[in-house]
Design a binder for these strands. Sequence first.
DNA 1: ATGCCGTATGATATACGA
Length: 272
Amino acid sequence: MSLRVISWNVNSVRLRLRAFRRLVNRYDPHVFCLQETRVENASFPYEFFRRLGFEYTIVHGQKMHYGVAILSKLPLSDSRIKNWCGRPDCRHVFATLPGGIELHNFYVPAGGDVPDPQVNPKFAHKLKFMTAMARWFRRKRNPENRYILVGDLNVAPHENDVWDHKRLRRVVTHTPVEIEALGKMLRSHDWVDAVRRFVPEDKKLFSWWSYRAENWKAADKGRRLDHIWVTPALGDSLKAAEVLKRARGWRPESDHAPVMVTLDLASQSGPT
DNA sequence: ATGCCGTATGATATACGA
């Protein structure tokens, strides 16, 4: 059985319906994981996704800001929402897919402007959030766990995850303290960075380009903020992973591109 | 490398993104 998941920071789900149709036609994913849906649950376009075949959903949103959702053609069990740092701000949903695969969808706080937790509460929140995530997964750590973690983690960890490493090392998303916090998260369950598994580390790779740039594609001043990780038990199942860069330009535009992973589960657990 | 852009809101200013 093949499993294809697309994760996307949509910057308002209601503006991307046309783009979802294109993604389904082009890539035929089983599951969408969305961040920054920016809509309360009652107004979520459930019916649109149901008509596309995504009838299993876990939606956790609010007015204006943040919001996450999982939309699946495959049954979801044990659907859960989890609050972090004592805030009900809609940044994490997870559920179990057939075959016992636990799928986690995260929207890590952006962190504001100033990369100093002493003066910027948003940055302090971001670091606290990542520390709590690492602690939580460390407690769950087990070599048999088959987990997928996707989302907008709002950190570009490697030199070639940003357009200019030297100029961005004091810019939120690429500071050493954030990169260290993301490293702790990665090590908390020995996660495999699925996208970098297929794109060599010496090659530039981005998933976000600012709206502000005159010509985002030509300037290509991007950062890799969106990630797909799997636990070691799923490492051998990884078949492909990529950033769907072309979708960054589909109007109306999100400033993030979707990321996609394909797993081949045939050899692992048999039929589900 | 910020916010020149974009989204959302009982909204013609403000909060947030990163």
